[in-house]
Design a protein around this nucleic acid. Structure first.
Lengths: 210, 210
DNA sequence: TTTTTACTATACCGGCCGGTATAAATATTC
DNA sequence: GAATATTTATACCGGCCGGTATAGTAAAAA
């Protein structure tokens, strides 16, 4: 399914830079204004490209949208979220994990992506599935593995690591993520974030200490 | 601001039943298909009413939308969510609270309302504020009060009751609420729900026992 | 150079939708 | 009954937008 090749015969080849520009513009506008709120005209203008070029690179609006979502997902998860550092005490390791997770889910682009998926889900279940497996699913598995390792080291006592990972992620997201989704307040500042993470980590350790 | 009165002089009075029908239709369609996905024509048809009658009862689409959201919020929070029963052991009291909260936030209408607010928030911050204060805010305050009472009785040891209430609500919503928002899976069945609540309550008590 | 293809500019089509206009019918007060 | 106001049915306007058509220009392969 890789469109990267232009094996092609005679004629002018497609400019990959234009494709990138279109994709970048689509990501920006879709994440900022939603699906319905982003017209193909506007995306073409933002990309500095003619409208017909859009349709030459992407079949229609939905195909462009899928490509943009896919690219966003891939770009936002560079590799594995977190590899537990064996030497850290459990408070600090959990704190680092929480911080990494937070910065992943609370950025404006991430909030925009969440909004987009939540809006689009009813009409497009496979897209939300793609998003979930590329994003939340992987984070959850990483967290579960971390908790298993910590348990095997005697740092925690977790019986169902997957459920515990769910709890941990829910706690870290907390109320502020919801606030941001409904536009009720902005992200936490640094001090609030530190306090929130310390609070969550302490709670979690109290609940799962050996 | 009550429009209930028709004090009026001569002429045919407005039929309040039609207003109700319009509002009911608007609630159904907006919650099911979103704002853009619900045309005024469709709402009129659903209400069994002429399009112009719509515009005679509500200034424009946005006004109708506001009224529908407001009515939905009021209807979904009959009074106070929960009054702690003094005689129950803490596990059962927390379990009852969690169950009530869950049934409030995980119903299809509630999921639809959440989707709606999340979609509409960027363009309409005051609406999301209205929603938050009528819904989540009140639930949070009820939970906080419950935790304070439980602490004063020595059943729990909570220092910051508001933060603890946030944690509790986050845990109860958990992953499944998110799943439903992005259309990745349906609601929990009864057995899963019971297990989830038992798990969350146990975790919470381990973290906040005296 | 010739051919083939990408790209631009512009205009256009068709559909959907929010909102209005018109005219007739109906219900209620005076 | 007269006056007033709601309701209905229908048609229409104007704008936005996804997608296409046309015609011309630029660039790369043959």
């Amino acid at each position: 399914m890789s469109e990267t090749a232009q094996p092609a015969g005679p004629g002018r080849p497609k400019d990959p830079a234009k494709r990138e520009a279109i994709l970048a513009a689509a990501k920006t506008l879709f994440l900022g204004n939603g699906y319905e709120g982003s017209s193909m005209e506007a995306i073409a203008a933002e990309a500095g490209v003619s409208k017909l070029t859009l349709y030459s690179h992407f079949k229609d609006k939905e195909a462009l949208f899928c490509a943009a979502v896919q690219a966003t997902c891939e770009q936002r998860l560079p590799s594995s979220l977190f590899h537990p550092a064996p030497e850290l005490p459990i408070e600090q390791a959990l704190g680092a994990l929480a911080t990494a997770f937070w910065s992943l889910v609370s950025s404006p682009e991430s909030i925009g992506l969440h909004r987009l998926m939540i809006t689009v889900a009813p009409q497009n279940p496979d897209m939300s599935r793609l998003f979930y497996e590329a994003g939340p699913q992987r984070v959850l598995q990483d967290t579960r593995q971390f908790l298993q390792v910590a348990t095997s080291r005697g740092q925690l006592q977790v019986t169902d690591a997957l459920k515990a990972a769910e709890h941990f992620c829910s706690l870290v997201k907390g109320l502020n993520h919801f606030h941001q989704l409904i536009g009720h307040s902005g992200p936490l500042d640094e001090a609030q974030l530190r306090e929130h993470i310390a609070d969550v980590v302490a709670l979690f350790i109290r609940a799962y200490r050996p």
